[in-house]
Design a protein around this nucleic acid. Structure first.
Length: 422
DNA sequence: CTATAACTCTCAA
DNA sequence: CTAACGTTGAGAGTTATAG
């Protein structure tokens, strides 16, 4: 068994460029919610030294100097583009694992005598032509190696034209290549681990590949030991074709403007719970407990700080927005303290299980579930847009709404957003 | 004491 | 003019708590 890992290049940036070709070759970024941080960078911006996650306001002067364009994130567009890309790639193997919005693994069982380099080129070419997005392809005998291979393809380290197959290198070539890649590029090795590994003299991928497995398990973790094995070509991570149901569902957001009142927080929590409950119903689960949390802005150290959260069990597991919201608002009242500038709130659905065979309750619920009502609400919001039907507790003013200063049109999902051609 | 729950840390996109 | 810093999910490891 071997794997392919296909990854979109600067995915969000590339999505914007598909519909606005003037952005090609321009230094540009896409920002996180509230136009807060840089979450995607074009090659031109990377060359200027802009790092991932940098707060946008800190880049303002650099941006002026180099005419960096910044787009608010348009997740509706990116999700739709992702679906198109995944659909094309799914035709290249009977086994696909969609790992994130911009990357997927393919299982290559029985592709032993394929010309993988040519196969990868076909994927690239077809995704570019049919969807408009540039991608890179990496092949390897384990998922970790396929990931690393993709990294090489992107950096033109051992690949040609955005495709790389580490399996085609001789042992000597591979050894040399791995000794030139920093250990931090390995899947699962973040900044913290990079530092800890460096203390033990492990700085390159090659170092990690040859590290003593028992030492790694004892000094680090079983996870890293698995990574070492995978680097040696021993497959420890399987392809997960169907995503398992989530064990928890979170909906949280920073506000566009500080919120000071309980009413304001109640509106936000109601909205977040509506989104979370939609996700819950989509995977046909019910929740046994609800967590709600609020906090002030931790970056403002001259402001009084407060953060709190509370978990409220629901009387019986449910996916009914009204009952879940009721519990969340109960919790919110409990933790709310007046006199603070709140910057973020969120809800979490916990103790999830399959709906359908719910435990019969001993006592009658004060508020009974209304599954048909929930179904009508979900359908209406899909058909006519989010927020078409909602609970009154969400309110209407929403002065705390996200900041999205430079949002591109929903080119692929809204007729209204299509530019007029005259 | 052990078993579990709750919480913290790390990583990923 | 100033102030302006993401979201979601998982897993492992550690600490607190119940019995």
């Amino acid at each position: 068994m071997s794997f392919a890992l296909i990854d979109g290049n600067n995915f969000y940036v590339s999505c914007e460029r598909v519909f606005n070709p003037k952005l090609e070759d321009r230094p540009m970024v896409v920002l996180s919610n509230n136009d807060g941080c840089v979450v995607a960078r074009s090659a031109e911006v990377k060359a200027l030294g802009v790092i991932m996650g940098e707060p946008w306001f800190k880049l303002k002067s650099l941006a002026r100097k180099h005419h960096i364009l910044a787009y608010s994130s348009n997740y509706t567009l990116y999700a739709d583009m992702s679906n198109r890309m995944m659909a094309v790639l799914s035709t290249y193997s009977p086994q696909q694992e969609i790992y994130s919005i911009d990357e997927c693994f393919l299982g290559l069982d029985g592709f032993d005598h394929f010309d993988l380099m040519a196969y990868g080129q076909r994927m690239r070419q077809q995704v570019k032509q049919w969807v408009g997005l540039p991608v890179c392809v990496g092949f390897g005998s384990t998922k970790t190696l396929a990931k690393l291979s993709n990294h090489c393809a992107k950096k033109f380290l051992a690949g040609q034209d955005g495709v790389c197959d580490l399996g085609q290198l001789s042992l000597m070539q591979l050894d040399t290549l791995l000794s030139r890649i920093n250990v931090g590029e390995v899947w699962g090795v973040g900044r913290r681990l990079t530092d800890k590994l460096a203390e033990r003299g492990i700085t390159t991928v090659r170092d990690l590949q040859h590290a003593d497995a028992r030492m790694i398990r004892e000094s680090f973790s079983v996870t890293l030991e698995r990574t070492v094995r995978e680097l040696r070509g021993v497959s420890c991570l399987e392809l997960e074709e169907l995503a398992p149901a989530k064990k928890q569902i979170v909906s949280s957001r920073a506000f566009g403007a500080y919120v000071y009142t309980l009413t304001g927080l109640e509106e936000a929590v109601s909205l977040y719970m509506a989104r979370a409950a939609e996700k819950l119903r989509r995977q046909h689960s019910v929740a046994g407990a609800v967590q709600v949390f609020i906090r002030t802005n931790p970056f403002k150290d001259d402001h009084p700080q407060y953060q709190s959260g509370i978990t409220i069990p629901v009387a019986s597991p449910t996916s009914d927005t009204r009952r879940l919201t009721h519990s969340a608002l109960l919790g919110l009242k409990h933790i709310f303290k007046t006199g603070y500038a709140y910057q973020k709130a969120g809800v979490m659905l916990m103790e999830l299980r399959d709906s359908g065979h719910e435990q019969a309750t001993l006592f009658k619920e004060p508020v009974p579930d209304r599954p048909k009502l929930m179904d009508v609400i979900d359908r209406a919001n899909v058909q006519w847009g989010q927020g078409t039907l909602k609970l009154a507790s969400e309110g209407v003013e929403k002065i705390w709404h996200m900041k999205r200063g430079n949002l591109s049109p929903h080119y692929t999902t809204s007729w209204q957003d299509l530019p007029r051609v005259n």
